[in-house]
Design a protein around this nucleic acid. Structure first.
Lengths: 250, 250
DNA sequence: GTGCGGGACATCTCTAGAGAAATCAATGTT
DNA sequence: AACATTGATTTCTCTAGAGATGTCCCGCAC
């Protein structure tokens, strides 16, 4: 018996997903528009709710659409990342089930485990970017449903934050940035680089990962104001959760 | 009405997925082991088939497990990528629904569109890595279900492949490597780098993407034998499909 | 207006069942 | 020894329905 060279007809949910994706790419839907929901698809194609859900979940998994319980499924598109100039990093335009940048991932908020905050000698890139000999390093782990998804290390120039609330272990989320804003240092500049690699043993332990778990390093995000660097952020994320989600304006 | 600070109890499918993931990380399952299937989970937890499927799909989406219709759901683990030495790149150990390296993605094979193969002057990295002035470039696009997922450009030293079947447009998949092996050049060395960025207009057109679609560039994979470089491969992949899937032995 | 309640609406979770399709092992045939 | 068939197992696709939960908005009370 020979294998048919042409695969069998695509399943319904996949054909519907393809049609919606093509409609998006054809410009019929734009960023923020609401896609036809489960009920609409059920009526239009005469299918069961589960099948309509499956069609939408394809686009959601791809990062093309974003569900919002009670509100609908929305189109998400990306804008190009520009390399120079002043811009703002928005991390919360749309929540997604797989994006770990957002505090609300499909109804499940992440938790932030404050692992440590300590004064350390600046090494390598931190010294170069921040231009200082000593930094305060704050390491935090983000978990969703108890599963660690991201390890972030933020470096601040020691002379900038010394004696400020930044160096206190109980500084809550956003507290550092509020403090920096008070000091006149708004996030204004960034550089970016992404590398794929396996986690070093030390990072692996902090993330609580088993040996061999793949990660993606999203690193070297530098914030500065008026030409003066104030933070160097290094993020380590697992590959399965990684989805590009930058959105800059101005 | 206040928002409860503690989220409601996790749904069943998620608790089961967590339990399985912890079992994997605890070493109860190893790479290639079969996980309890839908029927086993239905019996063990007294749930419906759809719920059991949902639990497994969590792990499958994370890249931790790989389903195989008719055969079961298997554990997939990764080994560290080493930086130096001789090793073999295996692209087909396990098929996944999201991995685009495999010809068989959950029953849906990808198609390879041969876009062009042409002799070009070696530029930038190709000249440096391959050490030649002219190269043959072969550009191919990979699609799954009609959706383009990867654009690959392979450079070969002109003097190496000149007059060989490699330069013929109808060279099938794998044909180039077979030819190179005949010439005594087995894939033996690689370097790797991953960058996130938006596609350039030219690449966007070749991939058939709409403006603003996020991609990840997996690039600079150099193959060599006996210290002589024979290929420089540049791959452009969409972020949603990207999953680390390297597996080296020896 | 400001806040609160309620209704409409949409997604999320789950149940129960059934036929299709792929895999694998065992069996039979040539 | 090589090949074809069969059957058991398992995942894949889909139907039909129902209660829970979150979002949005309108209208009412203060």
């Amino acid at each position: 018996m020979m294998q048919s060279p042409v695969p069998h007809e695509l399943p319904i949910y996949r054909r519907i997903a393809d049609r919606l994706r093509q409609a998006i790419q054809a410009g019929e839907f734009h960023d923020g528009d609401r896609l036809p929901g489960e009920n609409a698809l059920m009526a239009e194609y005469g299918i069961a709710r589960a099948t309509a859900r499956q069609a939408l979940s394809v686009l959601i998994n791809e990062g093309v659409a974003v569900p919002r319980r009670g509100s609908g499924v929305y189109v998400r598109q990306f804008r190009p990342i520009r390399r120079h100039g002043s811009r703002r990093l928005s991390r919360e335009r749309w929540g997604t089930g797989r994006a770990i940048w957002d505090g609300d991932t499909a109804g499940r908020p992440y938790t932030v485990d404050e692992l440590e905050i300590a004064r350390e000698p600046a090494v390598d890139e931190a010294a170069r970017v921040l231009g200082c000999a000593e930094v305060w390093v704050r390491r935090r782990r983000y978990s969703v449903d108890g599963r660690p998804v991201q390890l972030a290390a933020s470096c601040f120039p020691a002379e900038l934050v010394e004696g400020s609330p930044v160096t206190r272990p109980d500084t809550g989320p956003g507290g550092v940035y509020a403090r920096l804003r008070d000091l006149g240092h708004a996030p204004a500049h960034f550089t970016e680089e992404v590398r794929a690699r396996m986690p070093a043993p030390e990072e692996r332990d902090r993330l609580g990962l088993s040996a061999g778990t793949p990660v993606i390093v999203v690193c070297r995000t530098a914030f500065a104001a008026g030409g003066e660097a104030v933070e160097l952020n290094t993020m380590i994320m697992d590959a399965a959760s990684y989805v590009l989600q930058y959105d800059f304006d101005a």
